[in-house]
């Protein structure tokens, strides 16, 4: 998956390490959003026809299409459920976070 990754960010350890003014490297993500999730989307790739509705509509951009099938970046999926609701094939189901499923 080529989604942006969480980095271990080296925070300043002294005053002289502080960046000039309040500016900082763009595109730095230091923590996941997974903890927000109550419901978790599960994609059934056998039902998916790659219409990419979910891919384009995801407010967090967590659906990856690069491999030709869809994958979800669960680090950043907040479980909003838009993908599941919008999927015309009903290929994405929302399951309770933490529950076992096959």
């Amino acid at each position: 998956m080529s989604k942006p990754q969480i980095v271990k960010y080296k925070m300043p350890e002294s005053q002289k390490d502080m960046p000039l003014g309040p500016s900082s490297e763009a595109g730095v993500i230091i923590e996941p959003n997974a903890g927000w999730r109550v419901m978790k989307p599960i994609i059934d790739n056998s039902k998916c026809v790659m219409c990419l509705k979910c891919w384009i509509l995801c407010p967090d951009g967590v659906i990856d299409r690069e491999k030709g099938t869809l994958e979800i970046d669960y680090n950043f999926c907040k479980g909003c459920g838009i993908c599941s609701y919008e999927c015309p094939q009903k290929a994405i189901t929302m399951v309770k976070e933490g529950k076992q499923y096959d």
Binding site: Q15, M18, G21, S23, S24, E25
Partner: peptide, 24 residues
């Protein structure tokens, strides 16, 4: 080549150090 975000928010944990830098 080195994109940055300017004038960002700095939390209570970091804000004072930015102010100190300004004072310096």
């Amino acid at each position: 080549n080195n994109p940055r975000s300017y004038c960002m928010s700095a939390s209570t944990e970091w804000n004072m150090e930015f102010r100190y830098q300004q004072h310096e």
